[in-house]
Amino acid sequence: MANSTAVQEAIELTMASRIPLFTSVASLTWVLHDYLATVGDEVRYVWPSRWNVGKILFFWNRYYTILLVAFDAAQIHSFSKFRPSLYDCVLVDILTRVFGALGLWPIEIIMQLRIYALFNRSKPIAVFNATLFMASIIAFCVILAHNVGELSAKISFAKALPIPSCPIVHVELEWAQWVPPTAYEGVLFSFTLWRASMTLAAKLRETKGHVTFKENVAMPTLHSLLVQDNLLYFLGICGLLIFNNVMSTSASRIPWFSFGPFHAAGGIMTARMLIHLRKTLAVRQEKVYNAALAQLDKTHPAQLATVVDVRASRVHRRADTESTLVDDSAVGT
């Protein structure tokens, strides 16, 4: 009877370990495909900008995501070829979670910057969010340290079975490890909803039929763009974290897909969001500039050639829209 139970458990663990073999490769393929699909916009709208915090965070998210998902795929496939030791399994499990957190935390810093911009560079809100951010990091590390001992015991028991690779096991409080970042995302999302409701109320109070110069060029302001993107982005990130929490629970019937899809989705959403911001602002600046040229051509046609020459010499510098990410007043609200 004991042998029958052990065989059944070995079969279940073996079957469970096969799922990440496919999802990790699919995640890497997705990341590489998205990179090739968007690298043209990256070169055009990101590369010419000056180096600052925003640009560093973009490149960290962009290329660290590729390396992280490649590490997931390489580790899962290499370990499937032999029976790694207990030490190797525990070490890799911890490193995978820490490496994943190093990809998630910069994303949360970017989200803080966007909230900072939405609330007109409010220092109290920035300090409040930064404090909660540090608290979520500390809570994550404490729960991770607590889970290591139980994880080692569970892996040790599973390693006694005749299975390849590292067994997929879940400790009792594994789901709690991702609760702090999920709760923090919820706080940031609440700020976005608050700002969106304020923006909607302000629009409803506006005088109907009043048309400004910005509305004539039919492009959104940075403020409205941030509100729109943040709502979708925060929903996506919160959804990923919640799904990851559910997948980590022992009672869940959802199989373990590995961290690959989670890492890939978070990195892709962040990169596309930042590229979309830069692209939209660059196009908006171009339309504003063309409208100004048309007006100048009507009023002072003799000065038009001089203005066009100056524009041509500064075209690459105008691609730098990063400062508007945290300075809402740069383009108006």
Rank of each mutant, 00 (worst) to 15 (best):
Q112S: 09
L95S: 10
H77E: 10
F99S: 09
F79C: 02
A101K: 11
A74M: 01
D88G: 00
L104P: 05
S80L: 04
T96N: 12
I94A: 08
A126M: 12
Y116T: 05
G100W: 02
V90F: 07
P106R: 05
L91Q: 12
K123F: 10
A117E: 04
L95E: 10
P124I: 09
I109R: 03
D93K: 06
F82V: 06
S122G: 10
P124Q: 09
V98G: 01
K81F: 14
H77C: 05
S78L: 11
A126S: 12
A117K: 00
I110R: 00
F79Y: 14
R97C: 01
R83T: 15
L104C: 14
I110E: 02
I107Q: 11
F99L: 15
A101W: 14
I125W: 08
A74Q: 00
L113H: 11
P124R: 09
I76N: 01
W105S: 02
H77T: 13
A126C: 08
S80H: 15
S85Y: 08
Q112A: 07
L113K: 05
P106K: 05
I115Y: 00
A101S: 14
R83G: 05
K123I: 14
L95Y: 12
G103H: 08
L91G: 02
S85L: 06
L104F: 15
I76F: 01
I125L: 13
I94Y: 09
L102Q: 03
P124W: 08
Q75E: 07
A74K: 00
K81G: 09
I94L: 11
L86M: 12
F119N: 07
G100M: 05
V92E: 14
P106M: 08
A126P: 02
L118H: 02
K81Q: 15
F119S: 04
N120D: 13
P106L: 07
